[in-house]
Computed example of a mutant assay.
Amino acid sequence: MNRSVVIQKLETKAKRKIVISDIHGNLDLYLKLLDQISYKPNEDCLILLGDLIEKGKRNLDTLHYIMHQVQNEDVHCIMGNCDFIAKNVLYSYRLDFLKHVLGFRKESLIHEMARNLNFEITHNSNMANVCQILRKHYLKELCFLNDLPHVLEDEDHIYVHAGIKSNENYGTDFKQV
């Protein structure tokens, strides 16, 4: 798997940039926040700093809502560490770690996907088979998360999920951002 840092230039003509981080699959709270800040689609630029999913009760709904926003509004996202779980499924990467995380994180995009397909992920699940089934039914969602950049840049700002060591070099591995 390519672990290079993916940097994307942010281009917007919006007068107001709104930056939100760590939605964590809580669509109701996210919508309430957008209402409270009087977010205006296509007038405002919305920048989501990762952790779009995981830990919330409506991960899949949240993901679909944000995917729609990205397609239809001036909305830009970066990948957070919790969004990385999609890479684990998409590439069948570190399956023991994936099973471990899903063992204690019951509020998860992956569990929701499995429930929608009428199966449950347990400590006995064959994770390679689970990943294959989820890719078959949720490839678009997994690819959306996989393809998120790790860094957004405009003339004045650098947007990342956690932090950077220097403005000149974000590192060679996305884990460093």
Rank of each mutant, 00 (worst) to 15 (best):
Val101Leu: 14
Arg94Cys: 12
His123Asp: 15
Asn118Ile: 07
Asn169Pro: 03
Lys55Ser: 11
Arg58Ala: 08
Leu95Gly: 03
Val5Asn: 09
Ile7Met: 08
Tyr159Gly: 03
Met67Ser: 01
Leu90Gly: 02
Thr122Asp: 08
Asp96Ala: 11
Arg135Glu: 12
Ser4Val: 13
Gln132Tyr: 15
Asn88Thr: 10
Lys99Phe: 01
Asn42Ser: 13
Met113Tyr: 03
His24Phe: 06
Asn81Leu: 04
Pro149Thr: 07
Ile18Ser: 00
Tyr39Asn: 03
Leu90Tyr: 10
Asn72Gln: 13
Ser21Lys: 03
Asn2Pro: 13
Glu54Lys: 07
Lys140Leu: 11
Glu107Ile: 06
Leu52Cys: 03
Leu52Lys: 00
Asn169Val: 10
Glu11Met: 15
Lys165Ser: 12
Glu155Val: 09
Asn146Phe: 12
Ala114Ile: 04
Arg94Val: 11
Asp156Arg: 15
Val151Ala: 03
Cys131Ile: 04
Glu168Leu: 13
Ala128Gln: 12
Leu109Gly: 01
Met113Asp: 02
Lys57Arg: 11
Val101Gln: 11
Leu109Tyr: 01
Leu48Gly: 03
Asn126Met: 08
Tyr65Trp: 10
Ile7Asp: 07
Tyr65Leu: 07
Cys77Arg: 02
Ile158Phe: 08
Leu95Asn: 04
His123Cys: 12
Phe97Arg: 14
Gly50Ile: 04
Asn129Leu: 15
Lys15Tyr: 10
Lys175Val: 14
Val89Pro: 02
Val101Phe: 13
Glu73Gly: 06
Leu29Asn: 12
Ile133Lys: 13
Tyr30Leu: 12
Val151Gln: 03
Gln132Cys: 15
Asp147Leu: 09
